[in-house]
Simulated assay, not measured.
Amino acid sequence: MTIQTTKTNAVHGGTLRYLKHDSATTGTPMTLSVFTPGGEGPFPVLIWLSGLTCTEDNFTTKAGAYKAAAEHGVIIVAPDTSPRGPDTKGGGVADDEAYDLGQGAGFYVDATQAPWTPHFRMESYVTGELIELIDSQFPTTKTRSVFGHSMGGHGALTLALNHPELFQSVSAFAPISSPTRCPWGEKALGAYLGDDRSAWARHDAALLIEGGATQGVYDDILVDQGDADPFLVEQLKPELLVEAGKASGQKITVRMQPGYDHSYFFMASFIDDHIAFHATRLKG
């Protein structure tokens, strides 16, 4: 696999790299950032999944995560949120004029419907090719956890629930808790997966937890949510995660943070807690 390093910065005693590679999974170039702490390693890995409209750069420049990552000795990987065009053969990649569908809005699923099917395979990309790339190119312990924000919080939860063998722990900021029951999710899952709502269920964290998907796997799931988030009531619905945890016996720590909105100011305020949460479980 040929990896191109497009930019490198020193930060908190470690190295931040922006990378680009041609993905066999999506059939497009994919971009990501990787922070490695100082020292020889090996280090465990934290994969961050970003939200709607984001690229690999939003978390990288705004979250303020690397001081804590250096202190805990963890690699942080932040991939782009979708394939983008043109593809590796010079063809087009499907898109939509709306911000919540298409490029920048991959929803971390493998699309089964045209015109999305050829390239929109973000579940397979994150759980397969991305992990293989990081483990082959960096000094990792081959253990990892996953966290994310909004659409990426949905992605972190559902990928961890569907692929528990890959991840030691999972957390989220303001996740789309039940995409089968909110406008963002209904639009995206309908477009990518079709009208059969039974195919949507494995991409709904609340339904997965309610059905016992994580019993005996994760000792806790950490979720932070701002109570001033404009998307809280209509789109995010963290109360459905709480209810699912109670129904299944899965421990879920949902922290409602007063005064915080949906922005990266919110994540920057609590990112150290999430890195510590994962570091404890990655090194335990």
Results as ranks from 00 to 15, higher is better:
Ala206Lys: 05
Asp57Asn: 15
Tyr260Glu: 11
Ala201Tyr: 12
Thr180Ile: 10
Leu222Glu: 06
Arg197Tyr: 03
Ile209Phe: 05
Gly38Arg: 12
Arg121Cys: 03
Phe173Pro: 00
Phe231Ser: 05
Ala10Cys: 00
Cys54Val: 00
Gly128Tyr: 06
Asp80Arg: 03
Ala247Glu: 05
Gly226Lys: 14
Pro37Thr: 10
Gly259Lys: 04
Gly102Val: 09
Leu49Ile: 02
Pro83Asp: 06
Phe59Gln: 10
Val233Asn: 07
Pro42Phe: 10
Lys62Ile: 00
Gly91Glu: 13
Ala279Lys: 04
Thr31Gln: 14
Met151Glu: 11
Pro175Cys: 10
His119Asp: 10
Gln225Thr: 08
Ala276Cys: 02
Gly91Phe: 13
Val93Pro: 12
Val146Met: 05
Ala63Trp: 03
Ala244Tyr: 07
Gly91Trp: 14
Asp220Asn: 12
Asp87Ser: 14
Glu243His: 08
Ile3Tyr: 04
Asp135Phe: 10
Ile134Trp: 07
Ala65Asn: 05
Pro115Leu: 07
Gly14Arg: 11
Pro79Tyr: 04
Gly39Ile: 14
Gly102Lys: 08
Leu16Pro: 06
Leu19Gly: 11
Ile221His: 00
Val170Met: 02
Asp224Cys: 13
Phe231Val: 02
Gly226Pro: 06
Glu71Phe: 05
Phe173Gly: 09
Ala69Ser: 08
Gly14Phe: 11
Ala68Phe: 00
Lys67Thr: 10
Gln113His: 06
Asp87Tyr: 14
Arg197Met: 07
Ala247Pro: 04
Trp184Thr: 01
Gly92Ala: 13
Thr141Glu: 02
Asp229Tyr: 01
Tyr99Val: 12
Pro238Asn: 06
Gly39Gln: 13
Ser269Pro: 00
Gly85Ala: 10
His274Asn: 09
Thr112Gln: 15
Leu282Ile: 09
Thr180Leu: 03
Ile275Trp: 05
Asp227Gly: 06
Leu157Trp: 15
Phe231Pro: 03
Asp135Trp: 10
Leu133Tyr: 07
Ala276Trp: 01
Thr127Lys: 00
Ile76Gln: 04
Ile221Asp: 01
Pro230Gln: 14
Ser263Trp: 08
Leu236Ile: 13
Ala205Phe: 11
Gly259Trp: 04
Lys62His: 12
Ser269Asn: 13
Pro258Asp: 05
Gly185Leu: 07
Ile75Pro: 05
Arg84Asp: 00
Gly14Gln: 11
Val233Trp: 00
Pro238Asp: 03
Ile275Cys: 04
Ser178Arg: 09
Leu240Arg: 10
Lys251His: 15
Gly14Ser: 10
Tyr192Leu: 02
Leu101Glu: 03
Glu239Ala: 08
Trp184Cys: 07
Pro115Ser: 06
Ala201Lys: 14
Val74Leu: 07
Pro139Leu: 01
Leu130Arg: 01
Ala114Glu: 12
Asp110His: 02
Gly153Asn: 11
Asp57Glu: 15
His119Trp: 09
Tyr66Met: 01
Leu189Phe: 02
Glu97Trp: 15
Asn58Met: 13
Ala69Val: 05
Thr117Met: 02
Gly13Tyr: 08
Phe173Thr: 09
Ala276Gln: 02
Met30Ser: 12
Glu210Phe: 00
Thr26Val: 15
Met256Glu: 07
Gln168Ala: 15
Thr55Arg: 15
Gln235Met: 08
Thr31Lys: 12
Val11Gln: 12
Tyr218Met: 05
Ser178Cys: 10
Pro175Arg: 09
Asp261Gln: 13
Phe147Pro: 02
Thr253Leu: 14
Gly102Arg: 09
Pro86Gly: 08
Ile134Met: 01
Gln103Asn: 10
Ile252Gly: 05
Thr26Glu: 13
Phe167Asp: 02
Ala63Leu: 07
Gly14Asp: 11
